[in-house]
């Protein structure tokens, strides 16, 4: 473990908790893409199948359980509990255009052609594009609530910090995982225009509005 990965994990945890808090406090999931949250739940459930077979550390196990539980609760909030506030008219990204190609790629490009490894690879590829329905929804509504932009910033920062972690591990541990690195770079690049808007607008106290 290194400080970059630790801060990255905490940023990820913060993002997940910000989102849960926003939905619970405002009792509304307006502006939130249920499709992205569904994809994140899929990412965690396919990545952490080794939760009980591959013990790394108490921290690792704890975080995996928190991620799985929180992502499922978030999906439950959006599609069940606060369903009335779910903005399905703007959450129209065709997720099958993500899941199918990512599924195919996971079969073709992986480290090991075993079910667990293919599912892990699927999860890594899927995570890199899982935010697209959310970014698409914001581009359609033309704006995002400030709390939602803080959520997105923390979520984008997590994988950006992981890239620093991978550079660190390459130089100090001689360890690297090209699949995770390439997917992580794609994932972070997708946030770039959002990062720009967040820093130039939200941090200036303005509302985040995308040129529709």
């Amino acid at each position: 473990m290194n400080v970059f990965r630790l801060i990255g994990d905490l940023s990820h945890l913060l993002a997940i908790l910000i989102l849960l808090w926003k939905i619970w406090k405002t009792r509304s999931c307006s502006g939130i893409s249920g499709k992205s949250q569904f994809l994140f739940a899929l990412v965690f459930t396919t990545r952490y199948l080794d939760l009980f077979t591959n013990f790394i550390s108490p921290y690792n196990t704890f975080m995996k359980i928190v991620y799985i539980v929180c992502s499922c609760v978030t999906v439950y909030f959006i599609y069940v509990k606060f369903k009335a506030t779910y903005d399905s008219n703007h959450d129209t990204f065709r997720v099958e255009f993500l899941v199918v190609p990512v599924g195919g790629l996971a079969f073709l490009v992986n480290h090991d052609f075993t079910p667990l490894e293919i599912l892990w690879t699927f999860s890594i590829y899927l995570e890199s594009v899982a935010i697209l329905p959310q970014l698409f929804m914001i581009s359609k509504t033309g704006e995002a609530e400030t709390i939602t932009s803080h959520y997105l910033f923390a979520l984008g920062a997590y994988r950006a910090l992981y890239i620093v972690n991978w550079v660190y591990r390459y130089y100090f541990e001689g360890f690297f995982d090209l699949i995770a690195i390439v997917a992580g770079c794609v994932q972070t690049i997708l946030y770039c225009d959002f990062f720009y808007l967040y820093i130039t607008k939200v941090l200036q106290g303005k509302k985040l509005s995308l040129p529709a």
């Binding site: 994990d9 591959n54 550390s57 892990w120 001689g174 360890f175 690297f176 995982d177 090209l178």
Partner: peptide, 10 residues
């Protein structure tokens, strides 16, 4: 290539 390492990252 990737050194075979247990998946210790989240």
């Amino acid at each position: 290539s990737k050194t075979k390492k247990k998946k210790d990252e989240l």
